[in-house]
Design a protein around this nucleic acid. Structure first.
Lengths: 216, 216
DNA sequence: ATGTTATTGTGAAAAAAATAACAGCGTTAA
DNA sequence: TTAACGCTGTTATTTTTTTCACAATAACAT
């Protein structure tokens, strides 16, 4: 029996990464893989991979490593929602469009059910087969499709309002690209992608490396 | 003297977030702020904030809290490159354009020096005052402008090649949006923004919350 | 059969991060 | 002037996460 209780944020992130590599292997008809190979592809250590895999309850083979298909299946069973998960996207700007094309290349388990924007000029436009709807239809579309996860790609000043709409429509997982910390009830999980912070981190550590290479 | 040595990735991320809130306060003419207010804005705890601020070497006042301007200055001194940092962006697709508009609203300390793409149809196009250049000019532009940080917003199959070009041109900090783990020399810092993984995390934890609310 | 090899699975140790706890101290108000 | 208040600065504690280390083991060659 898998214990899904005490699993951390970080572990899920890594499992998701491992899966991408496994997909690649599977496409190339590779049958087995060692922990250090997975580790290498994800930029982590091999004990880390073994430990993460242990959580899944999957057992590898000391001589052949992990069976690619079996491990993929195990990961899918662990990470994916049975029957697939529908996601809504709010914001049909450049970022929204970029996200749509990310998803169009995705596995079928995750699909964008609908895209919304409050700019009348954008409503009705189609990209990658997805049509932009008016925000007025948000609650009804989300509820009819039983959507639980929303992606927020709107300007910061509309983010909280949009998040409130999402929560009211029954969504309890939000991926937030807006440069704001959202206030949401405790039963809503928010993952934030903060591009400004990411850039500042890169700038800082890149500079730090340069300084360390120059001085000592 | 500030000790920049043993600072972690996560701390820098938080400092960057604090700064955004401080900016907001400053615009609103707020003079002082308490640790718990900063904590609240960034979704962390107040001891965490005090601890992070401690690293900067800045001291607050037990009765008034932190002086907004002084703390901002301290953060700038710590995080920013004196004279500003120029950044190059590769990839003029939807994501690239979204990033350009993110930056156009940014503080002047970070600026996009140039944007590149290898699609001839895009070269010469201008967005937010930034013109798209050919990849052929990459090395010369990057070196002439002394650029150290690059943003990678190209499809996965071109990511490694582009990263190699960046490294060859003297860049030692990369923000990678492509769905690949880059292989770079140890003196190059890579920060990855993995949208697929982020979505899968949200899906997982949203589902977990639903299950925990239904069952017990 | 059996020895060899390279890997897994996992408890134990170490490291890192977050949290708690509280002494010390400006400020304010009496 | 002084007492009360509520916050900061910092040390200690706890929790979480990662790494280490090695016994157990399946496959393969001999």
């Amino acid at each position: 029996m898998i214990n899904r209780d005490k699993i951390s944020d970080k572990t899920i992130g890594r499992l998701s990464q491992y899966r991408r590599f496994l997909n690649l292997l599977h496409e190339n008809k590779v049958k087995n893989v060692f922990s250090y190979q997975i580790a290498n592809s994800a930029g982590v250590t091999s004990p880390q991979v073994r430990r993460d895999v242990m959580l899944l309850g999957y057992n590898g083979n000391p001589a052949k490593g992990y069976n690619v298909e079996a491990l993929m299946e195990c990961l899918a069973h662990y990470l994916d929602t049975p029957g697939g998960e529908g996601v809504v996207l709010v914001g049909f700007g450049n970022l929204g469009r970029a996200l749509i094309s990310y998803f169009s290349k995705q596995r079928p388990n995750l699909s964008i059910v609908a895209v919304f924007d409050n700019d009348p000029a954008l409503i009705g436009r189609v990209i990658h087969g997805v049509r932009c709807c008016s925000m007025e239809d948000f609650a009804s579309v989300a509820q009819q499709n039983n959507v639980r996860v929303g992606i927020l790609a709107v300007p910061a000043d509309q983010a909280q309002l949009t998040a409130d709409l999402m929560v009211a429509a029954g969504i309890n997982g939000i991926l937030n690209f807006a440069l704001t910390t959202l206030q949401v009830p405790p039963h809503v999980y928010v993952e934030r992608v903060d591009i400004t912070t990411s850039v500042e981190k890169v700038v800082f550590f890149a500079r730090k490396i340069r300084q360390e290479r120059t001085l000592p």
